[in-house]
């Protein structure tokens, strides 16, 4: 199952894009309570949003974003059938992508 959830909603002619990603977003300074060792850093570094194949947003992200990050953007216009794709890459090289069609 993909780690990304995308929801879109029409708002006064604009389209709100909301996304929720399940990711630990560890910044590398937390300690594991049972082993008393530092939990290695594991967080998303780059998030991109594309609209019909064109990149509309590129976010550079640090570990200062919460666990299971949520982001929202507002697309000017947008019509039903448009394809939104969201990608992420984290510091361990993992990546995921999800496609969504505006209803």
């Amino acid at each position: 199952m993909s780690s990304i959830k995308i929801r879109t909603k029409r708002l006064d002619g604009n389209t709100q894009i909301r996304t929720l990603i399940s990711h630990p977003m560890e910044h590398g300074r937390n300690k594991d309570k049972t082993t008393n060792k530092l939990i290695p850093a594991h967080y998303i570094q780059v998030l991109t949003v594309t609209h019909n194949g064109k990149t509309i947003a590129t976010c550079n992200i640090g570990a200062g974003i919460s666990k299971d990050p949520y982001f929202a953007f507002l697309l000017k216009g947008g019509k039903s059938g448009d394809v939104i794709v969201i990608n992420w890459i984290d510091n361990l090289g993992n990546k995921d992508s999800e496609q969504h069609t505006i209803i």
Binding site: K54, A57, T58, C59, N60, G64, F73, L75, K76
Partner: peptide
Amino acid sequence: IQAMLMPEL
């Protein structure tokens, strides 16, 4: 976070 937003947004 640092987000580069294109004019479409």
